[in-house]
């Protein structure tokens, strides 16, 4: 092992990229809280936050500041270490997924080809699943360590919900992977750019299932049972206060952002600007339009997430499980089989 033989420029490049991606996703998550409240307001014929700063734009800062200055309460009978570990895990897993999303094409800076992607690993999508399945632990550990029946119950609900919907999510993706033949997100995007159509055209049902599962994985309404404010007293983060609560809430928004970015990448062509031929643009312009396209798609999807949240009522728990196991999984299996048959037929 020769650690000094590392490509230092490469390491620095990736470090910078990681810093940028993390800070950007934090800022977006911050403003997603603001956007959520605005969308909720508009849908309910209200204004939403509009006091802090112009149009209430400083509201997320004010909220964050408030959370920081709140008293930090650690319940007496809780498991201290795990109680702190819970929100940390939630935050960590939320951030980790961003590593494999290709945020843009390749750009040449100072003679180096730089990918706007932290790591192009050949098992990209599986990595997402791995991290998502880790995300459950944040909820479970947090809920259990609070030493509170409601928290525990909500944590169990959350974990079983996440596991159930992960299955359908994986099955819906298998159909997509049959078409692309690659697990790397970069390859998937490049196929969508060079081919004429985005993957949603080939996989509308797969997209639908994936989208519903993404809602459930992010604990978003109508699947927000783990944190059902009105039923389980805030669910698994009932005992949390101050910034630890903030971490849990924040992780939800980061999750939402990341999963929207992944949906955009998988089904909507990633950084492919529609109706524009990227090859004709010069390097930097192509890159910027690509990044803008990806962010535009992501924001639209985030809006849809919020729109759904403020339209639909919460599922009952048995309805949730019914939908997952009896609705989405058979549908995903069907989609998989049909796609496989068609893929086999066209290949011959």
């Amino acid at each position: 092992m020769n650690i000094l033989a590392l490509d230092w420029a490469f390491a620095i490049e990736k470090m910078v990229l990681i810093a940028i991606v993390i800070s950007v996703s934090l800022v977006i998550a911050m403003y997603a809280t603001y956007a959520e409240r605005k969308v909720a307001g508009f849908i309910q014929d209200r204004h939403g936050p509009n006091r802090a700063g112009p149009f209430g734009l400083l509201q997320p800062l004010a909220d964050g500041l408030k959370l920081f200055f709140k008293e930090e309460v650690i319940p007496n009978h809780s498991n201290k270490w795990l109680f702190v570990l819970g929100p940390c895990l939630a935050m960590l897993t939320a951030m980790m997924t961003s590593a494999i999303i290709p945020w843009g094409g390749t750009v040449e800076i100072g003679g180096r080809m730089i990918d706007l992607q932290i790591a192009d690993i050949n098992i990209g999508i599986l990595y997402v699943f791995g991290v998502v399945s880790m995300g459950v632990y944040g909820i479970m550990i947090g809920g259990w360590a609070s030493n509170n029946k409601f928290s525990l119950m909500a944590a169990l609900r959350g974990a079983s919900q996440a596991i159930s919907y992960e299955l359908a999510m994986g099955l819906s993706l298998i159909a997509l992977l049959m078409l692309t033949g690659s697990l790397s997100l970069k390859t998937i995007v490049e196929q969508q750019i060079s081919g004429n159509w985005w993957n949603i055209v080939y996989q509308p049902l797969g997209f639908f299932i994936f989208f519903v599962c993404a809602l459930a994985e992010c604990n978003r309404a109508p699947f927000d049972l783990p944190e059902a404010e009105s039923e389980l007293n805030m669910g698994y983060h009932q005992e949390y206060s101050s910034m630890k609560l903030g971490f849990f809430l924040f992780a939800e928004y980061i999750n939402m952002f990341i999963s929207c970015a992944i949906i955009a990448t998988l089904f909507f062509g990633g950084y492919d600007m529609p109706f524009v031929d990227e090859t004709k643009l010069s390097g930097m312009t192509a890159l910027l339009t690509g990044v803008a396209a990806l962010f535009g798609k992501t924001f639209i999807l985030i809006f849809v997430f919020m729109w759904i949240r403020w339209t639909l009522p919460r599922f009952r728990y048995d309805q949730l499980m019914n939908l997952g196991w009896k609705g989405l999984i058979p549908l995903a299996l069907l989609n998989m089989v049909v796609t496989a048959a068609i893929a086999l037929y066209t290949m011959k």
């Binding site: 699943f129 791995g130 998502v132 399945s133 880790m134 459950v136």
Partner: peptide, 13 residues
């Protein structure tokens, strides 16, 4: 990654 998904992610849960 399969080890993580299946063992750490599902079975341990």
């Amino acid at each position: 990654i399969v080890n993580i998904i299946v063992y750490a992610g599902a079975i341990m849960v």
